[in-house]
Nucleic acid binder design. Structure first.
Length: 495
RNA sequence: GGCGCCAUCGUCCAGUGGCUAGGACGCCGGCCUCUCAAGCCGGUAACACGGGUUCGAUCCCCGUUGGCGCUACCA
């Protein structure tokens, strides 16, 4: 090695393409990325795809896309490669066998011929007596001859790492000093009977060969750490720094996991969440820089991030607060920016084309401007803007029932129809004035008049300010809809 | 069971050996108002328990309880 500066911070995130990235995994990726960027280092993506049966390219592509979308661009990894490649664990297979042999030769590891059945048997017998089970080192002292004999008998074997005596300690970046007595550790299997290396061995080798300086991962890996440090030392390499992040719970206080149906990051994207909001929310889930600032851009996070300030307490993720944060980020978008982001959602609903022309875009911006702060998600645009863009409106049954069946509705709609037909222009001020005049004439508040008009024109009981809405919709559509609604209302009230 | 990690409002995050324990989400009420959002104002709500140490503990120590993780020829 020598292709990287020893002083450079090299951090990795190592997902398995056996499922989608969810909030928990994404937060780990984010914290890794922030640690790297804060210290001017590199963020490396390594794909742990050794479980060939469960790994799929669909998951891989989704994971990569989610990283890009969140802004967590990797400096080395899939698609772009790098000097420490390959970045797919499945392509690194041939580097492990010689290292296992090395440990075997040096006595740091030994072959074990105990079959899984034997082990199960001894394990259960031991636990019946109330003892905790650790491999009993039955094969730890096997001579070369005995091993050869077993081989001759065709017995299969694994390779176990010999845990040395003593204590293992490290200074966790999040948890602080951690020390374990090696007696608590098991002589773990590092190579299966088919020769393939196991996780705890592979990570150590990969991290070492890739020059990883800091390993940030979920605290579910905390108890693996001493074993990995011991393996690294046996291999003659310096273990990296470790930082164990508290787990992320769902609102049910259960650890977020793929199998519990944790929401995939891509799903948030499809639901109209902003990457800025996700990133901001995840960063604040278990981390704070002490102050009361609640909005952080990725750049600000890079500047402020300090892994030692990560909480040691598991945090429950709150969808409500995420939703609020998303709305806040949407509010901060300028109208043109917001419009651009909303187009894909309108296109998916068939309301506009994927690439609206300038004229359409200008219209959309007026609509978006009018909708103002009502969007909680980008996807909300469809229900808010649908009546502007669709040729026909869809009436909300309850709105019709509550409003258009009222006796006075027909008169109001017809009355306004008349006034608006003769209106000198279709500016919102004009429309408001005419509407208020109608209300006054009828001796009711303006709200009484607005209500049926709103239902008539939007199909719903809620919408942005009605005068602006009518103005933007244009006289032609407004008159047509007032007329249609009046007819509908009269069929409903005559009964 | 063993080993380990953790413990401030329902949730997220501050905080100090002495504070009316702070902010945010949510919730409740009010203002604004053509509806709904947004915004603004106000309210609700927490230091798990028991021992120490100390003049004084939410904070330091020990224990209890509780939560979680690990305990594979999975990663």
């Amino acid at each position: 090695m020598g292709w990287f500066h020893m002083s450079e911070t090299r951090v990795r995130f190592a997902p398995s393409p056996t499922g989608y990235l969810h909030m928990g995994g994404a937060r780990t990726a984010l914290f890794n990325w922030l640690l790297a960027k804060h210290s001017g280092g590199r963020f490396i993506l390594r794909i742990e795809d050794t479980d060939r049966k469960r790994s799929t390219t669909e998951f891989l592509d989704a994971i990569l896309e989610d990283h890009r979308w969140l802004g967590l661009v990797w400096d080395e990894g899939p698609k772009i490669g790098g000097a420490a490649g390959p970045y797919f664990q499945s392509e690194r297979a041939d580097t492990y066998a010689p290292l296992i042999q090395k440990l075997l030769d040096e006595g740091s590891a030994y072959r074990c011929f105990c079959s899984p059945e034997e082990l199960d048997d001894r394990r259960s017998r031991s636990s019946q007596k109330g003892h905790d089970w650790k491999y009993d080192r039955k094969c730890a002292a096997l001579s070369k001859e005995q091993s050869a004999e077993h081989d001759a008998e065709g017995r299969s074997s694994v390779v176990r790492f010999r845990i040395p005596d003593g204590k293992t300690s490290f200074d966790d970046m999040v948890l602080g000093p951690v020390e374990v007595d090696n007696q608590e550790l098991d002589d773990l299997v590092i190579a299966r009977s088919d020769g393939t290396p196991t996780y705890n061995f592979v990570v150590v080798v990969d991290d070492s060969q890739m020059g990883i300086t800091h390993v940030v991962r979920g605290s579910d890996h905390l108890s693996n750490t001493p074993k990995q440090i011991l393996i690294a030392k046996a291999l003659g390499t310096e273990p990296p720094e470790f930082g164990h992040l508290p787990l992320v719970f769902g609102p049910d206080k259960q650890v977020l996991s793929k199998r519990r149906g944790a929401v995939a990051i891509g799903e948030y994207r499809r639901r109209g969440y902003l990457p800025e909001a996700l990133v901001n929310y995840m960063a604040l889930l278990g981390w704070s820089c002490g102050g009361e600032q609640e909005f952080f851009s990725l750049d600000e996070l890079v500047a402020e991030f300090d892994i030692s300030k990560v909480s040691r307490k598991a945090a429950a993720f709150d969808p409500e607060k995420l939703a609020w944060m998303n709305a806040q980020w949407i509010k901060r978008l300028s109208v043109p920016e917001r419009t651009a982001r909303v187009v894909p959602f309108l296109a998916a609903a068939g309301l506009v084309s994927d690439t609206p022309d300038e004229k359409k875009l200008a219209e959309l911006e007026r609509i978006v401007h009018l909708i103002d702060d009502r969007l909680k998600t980008l996807a909300d645009i469809v229900e808010h803007a649908g009546f502007f863009l669709a040729a026909d409106i869809t009436f909300d049954d309850i709105a019709v029932e509550k409003v258009l069946t009222k006796r006075e509705s027909v008169n109001i709609l017809d009355g306004l129809y008349g006034l608006l037909s003769d209106a000198p222009d279709f500016e919102s001020e004009t429309i408001e004035e005419l509407t208020r005049r109608l209300a006054e004439k009828r001796g009711v508040g303006v709200g009484k008049v607005v209500r049926p008009v709103r239902v008539a024109v939007t199909g719903k009981e809620v919408s942005p300010g009605i005068f602006e809405t009518l103005s933007l919709l244009g006289r032609e559509k407004v008159l047509a809809r007032l007329k249609a609604a009046s007819e509908l209302a009269s069929t409903l009230t005559t009964e």
